[in-house]
Amino acid sequence: MKQRDEMVLLGHGSGGRMSQRLIEKVVIPALGDSIVEGALEDASSIAQVDGEMFFSTDSYVVDPIIFPGGDIGDLSVNGTVNDLAMRGAQPVALSLALILEEGLPMDDLAKVVTSAGKAAIKAGVKIVCGDTKVTPRGSCDKIFINTAGIGVARSDLNISATNATVGDVVIINGAVGDHGSAVMLAREDFRLTSLVRSDTASLNHMVANLVSAGINIHVMRDPTRGGLATSMVEIAESSKVSIRLDESAIPVKREVMAACEILGLDPLMVANEGKMTVFVPARETEKTLSIMRSHPEGEDSAIIGEVVEGIEGRVTIRSTVGGLRIVSRLEGELLPRIC
């Protein structure tokens, strides 16, 4: 028998010898230093933490599983790490559950799990437990991943989507629309080649820098599905405030703008996986910007708007050409399976 199978078979999810071989020969080596000892036990213990604990989970079904700038592996780690970070929390433990389709090439599995491990190491979090299931061909598409994460934040922080206050400045850490357009363009449907790459990245280190500098962060949000527009509306509604954006200040890469024009999309509605908006009182703007800009994930940080008096839940934007319009959340699905 060969040391490693070429593709995932139903037996790899049996819990028996084939499962063991898959875990030992493929998954664990691929995860490398990102897993803790004892990750194969039924449950892992987590060291006592000091501060407020946060818990988050997310499932990933992106198609294709490998796209320019990333794959479903690093996406699934970064996504949960960022969800924790948006509450000011640093991740302390992650779970990684894989649902595989029979027939998935073993090389693809190894690649995806390797990038999940690398992303965890980069974010400074350990994978403490996991699971692998295999479904018959056609029951799932190649690979679905669920990650859950526990994080800890300083108890004196109060970062929440309900905290936007009139006078706050809205800052974003870079250009919007990269991830969604990269994934769409990577699909065979369009037969387009482009320079657009996903922005998938973990943001917790940049958040840690903001927190340790004592920035009074009111709100942080990662504008994933539904894009910047949807996340702004959610914050305006949760905080019962009005938000005014300036379209010409929102960074959009030229290639993303071009892709969106061709596909008929609004870059403000397109998903991001390495972006965050930060709401801070105006007097903290410069300090916040300089901290963010000194981090690799925040070099292109920009002020894109402010929280203003007005109708609760209303987001407006001054368009590049000078008109004023309402920003609304994404309705329905722009395109399915973007993350």
């Binding site: 609004d266 001054r318 368009s319 050409v321 000078g322 008109g323 004023l324 319009r325």
Partner: peptide, 10 residues
Amino acid sequence: IYRHGLKSAY
């Protein structure tokens, strides 16, 4: 026309 807010502005 809607997206760029042309009516009210111009």
